[in-house]
Amino acid sequence: MTYLQTPPVTETARDRVIREAQSAVVERIRADPAKARSTLRTTGHVGEGLACEVVQGPFSATLDLGKGMGGDAAGPSPGFFARAAIAGCVGIAVKMLAAREGVRFNCVDIAVETDFDDAALFGIGGGNAAPVRTRVSIDIDTDAQGDIVESIVDRALAMDPWFLALGNAQDVSATVSVAR
């Protein structure tokens, strides 16, 4: 984690909006914790070729592999979106917690590096196709003191769903149906 020092900056109007919105959510959840539970459904469709059209609510994305893997490079790979989810989730979690606590983070930059055993992807060798190691680095531009920044980042990571999904085992299941 790197801290870039800048002159003191007071809370911006945008940070105030973030803080107020987050505080309202926290109060709603405290009032009725059961409402904090949810299930999101995302669907994907792979037709001709390898491109996968993914939809969740009003949002959609195209995932594909490069030509070297038999795809058409119609969109980024699934791994891109996995790393993007981690980078986005970590960055947003850190920034929103800072704003909620009234600490100005001018910007948060995240890098996600993942090591793979590509042979395992094809069932070659005894390795595992899951990522071997993932490193997340967080650079923050702020005038806040390092111990305050560390505390915010540590707490944000302890509450961040996709950062936690990297390291914590979870119940994952799959069902299969066949249409003829």
Rank of each mutant, 00 (worst) to 15 (best):
Q145F: 08
I110Q: 07
E48L: 01
A156Y: 06
A73S: 12
A130Y: 07
A119E: 14
V46W: 00
T175P: 03
G127E: 04
T43A: 03
L164S: 09
A31G: 13
R30K: 14
R41L: 14
K35N: 14
V94C: 08
T6S: 08
T10Y: 11
Q22H: 12
R28H: 08
P161C: 10
A24W: 11
A51W: 00
K67T: 12
S173H: 04
G49Q: 00
C107P: 00
P58I: 05
A85R: 03
E48F: 00
F59L: 06
G167P: 02
D147V: 03
D139F: 01
S23W: 08
L164P: 09
D72L: 07
V26Q: 04
V149N: 06
A51G: 06
P7M: 07
D64V: 04
G75V: 00
E20L: 11
N128D: 14
P131I: 07
A13N: 10
P7H: 09
A85D: 13
R41A: 13
L97R: 11
D141L: 14
V172L: 11
A13L: 15
L157V: 13
D147A: 11
S151E: 14
E150F: 07
K35H: 02
D117P: 02
M1N: 06
G68L: 09
A85G: 15
P131M: 00
F163E: 01
R155A: 13
A129S: 15
L97H: 03
V26A: 06
M1C: 05
K35G: 13
V176Q: 11
A111K: 12
F80G: 14
T12H: 05
P58N: 03
D171P: 12
W162M: 12
D141H: 09
A74L: 02
Q170H: 12
R104I: 02
G91I: 00
P76R: 03
K35L: 15
D118A: 07
S151I: 02
R155H: 14
R83G: 10
G102D: 01
D139N: 11
L121Y: 12
D64P: 02
V54A: 12
A31M: 08
A82V: 06
D139S: 07
A130P: 04
T6Y: 07
I148A: 15
Q56R: 14
T114S: 13
A130V: 11
R19N: 03
A31T: 04
A165P: 00
I140N: 09
I140G: 04
F81P: 04
T175D: 11
C52P: 01
Q145A: 10
D115E: 15
G123E: 09
D32L: 11
D171C: 02
R133G: 02
A99M: 03
